[in-house]
């Protein structure tokens, strides 16, 4: 009980209203203005968006063919899927979609001479400069002019650990952590003004603090804008990507989604019980397991029959025995 009263007893300090007039509001106004100016300068620096290149577009879209086939191939009948699979694996291997068919692997030494890479790096550096320079300048300005006093009292309680960070410049022991210096007001504003900027500048504004954090952590990378760059910043070898995609496609089995669509339709309208679908799934799983492990004829007989009534009875019997077999094999 006693401890509670100590904590709740708030330190009531009366601050000079001049602090509010000459520190609190000016810092906020300055940050808003700097953010707006930064946004406009970024827009000016970026200039017109880069012209898209037909061949690069074709390259990326070509890669998507493989991805789409893998993702939605289950909607196509088997012959259509196989035909596309054959064509695409062939095309990827031969490199029909590559921008520069004879390029091959670029030697690492010439990386700096590749104009696209250099441009990407310059773009990234420009963005980073625009984000970091204002931040450092304002932090320096605040530390120089507005240090040595508490500015505000936070409405929420904090632990002792924050004291050193938020009360930098005021070395006291007993003061509540809720009283903080102007630097922490700066940080509060940094995150809090995002929505204000969105209101003023529309949603795509360049003063996004989240992007600042990302930019700081990936300093020096021109990777974000150039689609050819990989995460390490080296120009990716598109041919290798195509080959890996080709292998993915070769591994894809065709599962035709429409194989039992009639049964599904009947179940949907309530003509058949839903359990039929479960039994069919089990029968199929049994059939797959037994065909891959090449066991007795009885199980493979189940796999070939597709009509529901037969499957239900045979599957129930075979599922029990096959699961026992599977269990023993796995054990």
């Amino acid at each position: 009980m006693g401890a509670w009263t100590v904590i709740q007893e708030r330190q009531a300090m009366l601050l000079d209203p001049a602090i509010r007039d000459w520190v609190l509001l000016p810092i906020m106004v300055v940050m808003i203005l700097v953010g707006v100016v930064r946004h406009h300068i970024t827009v000016l620096l970026n200039g017109t968006p880069k012209k898209a290149d037909l061949k690069s577009a074709r390259e990326t879209k070509g890669l998507q063919r493989g991805a789409v086939l893998r993702a939605y191939g289950s909607h196509l009948p088997e012959h259509a899927f196989e035909a596309r699979k054959a064509y695409i694996t062939d095309a990827f291997e031969k490199g029909t979609y590559l921008k520069d068919p004879k390029g091959g692997n670029k030697p690492k030494g010439n990386v700096m001479q590749d104009p696209a890479y250099v441009e990407g790096m310059m773009d990234g550096m420009k963005k980073n400069m625009m984000n970091i320079v204002p931040q450092t300048v304002i932090m320096g300005w605040i530390n120089f002019f507005f240090s040595g006093f508490v500015l505000i009292k936070l409405p929420f309680p904090l632990t002792i650990r924050f004291k050193s960070m938020l009360q930098r410049g005021i070395e006291t022991q007993d003061m509540d952590v809720t009283w903080v210096s102007s630097l922490s007001w700066y940080f509060l504003n940094l995150f809090g003004l995002q929505s204000v900027f969105t209101l003023l500048l529309g949603s795509g504004h360049a003063a996004d603090a989240m992007r600042d954090m990302q930019a700081m952590s990936t300093m020096g990378m021109g990777a974000a804008t150039n689609p050819q760059m990989g995460p390490t910043g080296q120009p990716q070898d598109m041919h290798k990507i195509f080959l890996s995609e080709k292998e993915n496609i070769e591994l894809t089995e065709h599962e035709w989604g429409l194989e039992n669509v009639e049964i599904r339709l009947l179940v949907k309208y309530g003509k058949l019980p839903r359990s039929i679908l479960e039994d069919q799934k089990k029968a199929k799983a049994v059939g797959n397991a037994s065909s891959s492990s090449s066991s007795s004829a009885a199980s493979s007989h189940v796999a070939s029959s597709t009509s529901p009534s037969q499957a239900t009875m045979a599957a129930a019997a075979a599922a029990a025995s096959a699961s026992k077999k599977k269990g023993r094999r796995q054990a």
């Binding site: 009639e262 339709l265 009947l266 309208y269 003509k271 058949l272 009509s307 529901p308 009534s309």
Partner: peptide, 11 residues
């Protein structure tokens, strides 16, 4: 199968 066809037709 024939019975499926008939069922679908009926539906």
């Amino acid at each position: 199968s024939q019975e499926d066809l008939k069922a679908i037709d009926l539906l």
